[in-house]
Design a protein around this nucleic acid. Structure first.
Lengths: 115, 115
DNA sequence: GCAATAATACAAGAGTTATTGAATTATGCA
DNA sequence: TGCATAATTCAATAACTCTTGTATTATTGC
């Protein structure tokens, strides 16, 4: 994950309906939900939901799979973890105790790093 | 942290210079840096840096302290943790093994929750 | 008080992103 | 084939955000 990727992710999430969609899909897990159900859940028009889903997809945060006449969307969890890692990278110059908690440990857990 | 707060944080971070500023300050830790040094580090004009610092401040992600004629900015680490928590909340309906890693654990560590 | 430095505030124009409605594509089923 | 459903694409307008330059505020030291 580089700066540009992270900005794309953050911009994608920085919108009321897109954030609601993302959190809905985070809760839902890998099986995801079809576009129509997502639109209903966040009170979006089909057109609006489609636009926002495309934005999240462009950022790499979700991905689409056609299942019959439905298109199911689910979170791209690797990408999500990469983003969280990026935001907490090198926290407090490697001294997590400085910020009063353990963001660095969190990062390790998020990413599965053993470092 | 509610939806509006999270959107403010994400929008604040979704900008090249602001993200660079934020990451610089995350690395720097609680002591922070003065505005001028930040502006130099991210190649911003004084006016531009001021605008972007204000945006990050408005989102609650950093805060300002005047020290003599300098204004030092540092990360508001609690707010940062709240944001990471918000994004990973109720991941996979509480079954972190579903997403192939341990985002839920990460969240506990981020937030210091014992739950 | 005055000059210099650090930083912010304001205003205007440019650029980008969001919303809306109508039209289009893809699939399933009778 | 023909119709209904699921979802996307396109085009136009509206709304927002960023950038730039100038002016202003706050602080230090002579």
């Amino acid at each position: 994950m580089n700066n540009k990727d992270a900005i794309a992710c953050l911009a994608a999430l920085a919108h009321e309906q897109r954030l609601a969609i993302f959190r809905l899909l985070v809760k839902e897990g890998p099986s995801g939900l079809p576009a129509g159900e997502i639109a209903d859940a966040v009170d979006a028009t089909p057109t609006g939901a489609s636009f926002h889903l495309k934005e999240l997809d462009r950022a790499g945060l979700i991905h689409a799979t056609r299942v019959g006449r439905y298109i199911r969307y689910s979170v791209h969890f690797d990408r999500m973890r990469q983003l969280l890692t990026f935001l907490t990278e090198d926290c407090c110059q490697g001294n997590p105790e400085l910020c009063g908690s353990t963001i660095k440990k969190a990062r390790k857990v998020c990413t599965g790093e053993a470092k």
